[in-house]
Simulated assay, not measured.
Amino acid sequence: MKVGLFGANGRMGRVLIEALDQSDQAELSVATVRDDSPWVNMNVGELAGIGKQAIDCSAMSSLTAKDADVMIDFTLPVIFETNIAWCVEHKMPVVIGTTGLSEAQLATLDEAAKQIPIVFAANYSVGVNLMLSLVRQAASVLGHTADIEITEAHHRFKQDAPSGTAMAIGEAIADELGRDLKTCAVYGREGKEPERDQGTIGFATVRAGDIVGEHTALFADIGERLEITHKASSRLTFAKGAVHAAQWLHGKDAGPYSMVDVLNLKL
C-alpha cells in the first residue's frame, strides 16, 4: 500500500518516514513540503536521519492522486484546510494527527468525512487509546465523588495547550459523567479561590525540554486516590500507530473514524 505524507520535514513527519521504512505492509510513496521549502528535492531518508531512500521530498503543488493510496497529515492547523481540501478534491483517504484545530476547522473535518474516509485522533499510540477506555471506567465508579484533575507534559516546542490528548481524556471522562467539558473544565488556578467545585475537571500543563508526552488522569477522594498515567518515550510509537491506521483505512467507506475503530476498542 502506498502512503503519502504531508509536511515531511516536521518533527512527526520525519518519524513517520522512519516508521514507514520499518513497515512490512506499507511504503512511503510521496513526501510533500511547502513549495518554497528549502527541503524540496532533499532525500527523505537523509531528512529523517535513516540513510538514503528511494524518493526525495516534493513540492505540495506537484502532488497528484496517483501518488498515494492514503495520505497522513501531522502538520499544523494553519495548513490543515489546504490539506483536507486537496484530499476531498482527489477523493483521498487521510489519517489526521494535527492537534489544536479550531471549532470551525473541526466542522470542516466533519464535512469532509461525508465525502472521504478520515481517521482523526489526538493520539495514535495503543497505550493512550487504551487509557481513554480506562478513564471512562474509573469515571463511572469514582467520578461522582472524586475530584478529577488531568496533568500533561510535552516538549518546549509544542504549541497547543492543553494537548489534544489531554483534551481527549477530559472529553472521555466528561462524556461518561454526562457533563459538558466546555462548561466544567478549569484550565488554570491562581491566587485565592473558593473551595474546589467537585463537578469541575481541572487541567495542568507543563512544557519543558524534550519530553515526548506524559498524561495523568487523577481521581482523588478523601482517603484515597487513583492515578492513570501514560508516558511515551519515543515519537515512533505515535508514528507506527498512524501507519497502522492508514493501512486500516485503505478501502473504507467515507466517514469519520477514530483509533477506537482502528483498534476495535470497547469504550
Rank of each mutant, 00 (worst) to 15 (best):
A104I: 11
K240T: 03
A107S: 11
K182Q: 13
G188L: 11
I118W: 00
D24R: 06
S140V: 00
R11I: 13
T151I: 07
I116C: 07
T75Q: 03
K114W: 00
D197Y: 04
G10T: 11
A246Q: 09
K240W: 01
F219L: 13
S233A: 14
R34T: 01
A54F: 05
S163D: 10
D21C: 12
D73R: 05
C87N: 10
F74C: 15
G13A: 14
H244D: 14
G10P: 12
I173T: 08
R34Y: 07
S125P: 05
S125Q: 06
H215D: 10
E190I: 14
H144P: 00
H250Q: 15
K52L: 10
A161D: 11
M12R: 02
D210Q: 07
G251W: 05
V212R: 07
G241P: 04
A54T: 14
A174R: 06
E27L: 12
D24I: 08
R14K: 14
D221M: 13
A104H: 13
L226F: 09
R207W: 10
I169T: 06
P38H: 03
T32N: 03
S29L: 01
Q115Y: 01
N41S: 13
L226W: 04
E176V: 02
G178E: 10
I150E: 10
L181G: 01
P93K: 04
D56K: 10
T205Q: 09
S234L: 05
T64P: 08
Q159I: 07
S61V: 05
A85S: 11
E193M: 12
A153T: 12
A153C: 05
T145F: 12
F6A: 08
A104Q: 15
A254Y: 08
F219Y: 12
R196S: 12
V135Q: 01
